[in-house]
Structure formats: structure tokens, C-alpha cells
Amino acid sequence: MNKILFFGQLKERIGCANTQVELEYPSSVAEVKLQLQQRGELWQQLLAQGNVLSAVNQTMASDETDINAGDEIAFFPPVTGG
């Protein structure tokens, strides 16, 4: 099982800050996205956006990044600090 976190506008539009997924390992960020997109049209649309960034264990990741048991995954829009 893996914990998924959302931040910023993505969190607000999805309407939750975190969720969980069951995966078959080794998995990938792309597979997590696909699984979440099956939760409905909103999820489908929001996670299909080209500018959604991801992090695995608090390090920037890409669709190809491997996911193993216990890894923390996060999705968020481009950052706007400073």
C-alpha cells in the first residue's frame, strides 16, 4: 500500500489532501496516475494535465520513476514560492 499526497490547486480541485492505493510492485508513477484516473472524470482530467509534477519519497520524480512498497508519492502543480 502507498500513501498519495496532493498539494496546491490540485488538492483543492480533487477535494482531498491524501489517499491510498494498492499496487503490484515494482510499479511506477505512471501506473499510480492511471489507477487514480479510474476514480472518475475529474481525476482523469486533472491527472492528465501535462503540468502535474510528481515526487517519490519527497524527491522530484517522473512518470518512469519506480514505486515500491511504502513509498510516499505526491502530485502537485508547478511550484510558485519565493
Binding site: F7, G8, Q9, E12, N51, A55, M60, F76, P77, P78, V79, T80, G81, G82
Partner: peptide, 27 residues
Amino acid sequence: IMDYLKNQAPFWKKESTEKGESWVEFN
């Protein structure tokens, strides 16, 4: 440090304007 912070550090700004609240777009 500022240039990298602006692009990589996970912070998100939501502005409060006269038209209501809106998330700042990446520049």
C-alpha cells in the same frame, strides 16, 4: 539559490485579490 528555489522548492501561493482567491500560475 533564489532561481532554483522558485523552480524546485515545493511552495504554492494562493493570492487574495478583489475578485476573490486564485492560485498563482507558474511563470
